[in-house]
Design a binder for these strands. Structure first.
Lengths: 333, 333
DNA sequence: TCGGGCTCCGAGAGCGCTCTCATCCGGTGC
DNA sequence: GCACCGGATGAGAGCGCTCTCGGAGCCCGA
């Protein structure tokens, strides 16, 4: 799988255009300070020979790579069950493309992969890293920071070693949760329950905090732990119905969880939204629009988050951003 | 976003170990032909200095990159609505990791992106390419082949210019469709309908062919065009019910389509599977297991396909592979 | 006419690595 | 004891590019 065809070099282009390698290089890199006739000759030579610069040689001297790593820690299969990352990737890709940067994807599973990723990042292949750190105790953030690369995190990283001043992009999980709860209160509900996400992730913790802050009834029996999956939503919903059969609203940590909850509610004969109002989180379209009834949910701008992460990284910004969320009203609440 | 910290070079390692650069290089690359005491000294120097080889310099001379491009043509948003690519990526990533290769992700949207991708591939950044060509008229396959890179396609590419002898990995769409239809026949159904996928994709065409081959009733009114989305499934299902209200089974081109169809069937008061049996395709777990009733479907080994693509590419194999599908029986048929 | 400042171009030195080749060494066979 | 051989090591030549720097040419004012 070695490259065979020997590509034309700058030298060849220069020769054909009758100029020096230096001039050819200048033209290839924008052509400033080269007079028009020469520019034209070089351009033509490039065209004729089908010259494409050798990136390795270029990187060797410029120490730039025009590439950033996207690190996705993915211990569970779950990650791919929702299109969350895919959407973020898309945003990232768009932004990087606009900056002529490439996207190197590093998926990790398990601890040994971490050292591999650490080595790669330290190896100077990329100009920066975008890291999705899913878990509170994840060693990845620390590892990456130690590699000394500019880094932007997707979602607030947990407070492990040295990530305190990390740059990250997150959505306003806490605020969004508050909006969801207040919306339910506005509908006259008073016994609002919450199904959490996987609590080893900051997003789940923040949403829980937001819920607690806004919830009218602090009864801990109104909170059940989920894991961001439909199955988890089902289990938690059953638990809640058993503990507090009088509940009249549920705020689920994400749309998939809400979908599970809806199924259980229907199964138990509770009408949505009449008996129990349900609000999700994410506004994952293929999910939220397809549930029965269609899901009222807190939208976070997922693709935009990806785009922003990339922009912060290549722009060399130094501050985190928390994007606002909005409530999308459908039928379920 | 330029890299600042100046990393130690091989030269430095050699100096510290008291050997020549050549010997240091030998040790770093496996240590063959170097006597034990020296190997040890070099290893230690590497350790102490935290030396990591500069990949750009290495590529410059070896002309290898230990990286492959994954090209995903994604004109529609749809692609990310199902976890199909995510799963394939996962398989690819695993295999590449095992071969110490990196994964460079190129997402394209629209025609201008194609030239960008073509340039990149021709630019000699990667050792090969894995290409997902979604559409029959896609210029991408031809473009890639012209770049002269070893390439493996995900899914049978359409017969455009020069892709006739392309290497690809696909699942047995035609055969799988046949199995689905025969399963329905085995249940005593005689008026089996089909909702196709987006017919500009070979997978949809092949499934349709398989259906036609096995279907008991060749009435064209039993075939409605979908687009692999739940919405498309709904539309097509309504169409079918109107045209042939007597239908007693539906084979949907994928699980998402089936999910849409199920919704319409329920809405129209048809019981599944009693009145109408439904079979999907993919065995996309979060979808197939969560439908009501749970979906009987044709499973294709998605992650395995990704893995295999990567293996064919790095292994330099020359032949395409079509993986078998299996029927997964649940409730809907 | 001449010097000074400009702009434009080319020569050449590296970036950090690999790999060929010459060198050197100890051991062997005669 | 000597030529020989083979394995271990080092010297050095690039890989293809960028970028500094000096020189060449030009236009201007004096």
């Amino acid at each position: 799988m070695t490259e065979t065809a020997s590509r034309p070099t700058l030298e060849a282009v220069a020769a054909r255009a009758g100029v020096s390698r230096a001039t050819a290089s200048r033209v290839v890199n924008g052509g400033d300070g080269v007079r028009e006739p020469l520019v034209e000759r070089v351009r033509q030579a490039v065209e004729e020979l089908g010259y494409v610069p050798n990136q390795a040689a270029r990187s060797l001297v410029t120490r730039r790579h025009d590439a950033v790593a996207v690190v996705i820690a993915e211990p569970e299969t779950r990650v791919f069950a929702d299109p969350f990352f895919a959407l973020q990737l898309r945003g990232i890709s768009k932004e990087l493309t606009a900056h002529d940067s490439q996207l190197v994807l590093l998926l990790t599973e398990g601890r040994d992969d971490h050292t591999r990723v650490g080595r790669y990042l330290a190896g100077g292949h990329v100009d920066g890293a975008l890291v999705f750190s899913l878990h509170l105790d994840d060693p990845l953030p620390g590892l990456v920071q130690r590699a000394g690369l500019p880094t932007v995190f997707g979602g607030r990283p947990g407070w492990s070693d040295g990530t305190r001043d990390a740059v990250y992009v997150d959505s306003d999980n806490r605020g969004g949760a508050g909006v969801a709860v207040r919306h339910l209160l506005g509908l006259g509900r008073t016994r609002v329950a919450h199904i959490t996400g996987a609590l080893d992730q900051t997003s789940a913790v923040d949403r829980l905090d937001g819920f607690r802050e806004a919830a009218p009834d602090p009864d801990p029996r109104l909170i059940a732990e989920g894991d961001f999956t439909p199955g988890g939503g089902e289990r938690a919903m059953r638990e809640l119905l058993e503990r507090r059969p009088d509940l009249d609203a549920v705020f689920a940590a994400n749309d998939l969880t809400a979908a599970g909850a809806l199924r259980v509610l229907r199964e138990c004969g509770r009408r949505v939204p009449e008996d129990v109002a349900v609000v999700g989180f994410d506004d994952m379209l293929p999910v939220a629009e397809q549930t029965d009834p269609a899901l009222t949910t807190v939208r976070q701008p997922i693709e935009e988050m990806g785009r922003l992460m990339a922009r912060l990284l290549v722009g060399g910004e130094a501050s985190s951003v928390v994007l606002p969320t909005t409530l999308v009203r459908r039928v379920s609440a």
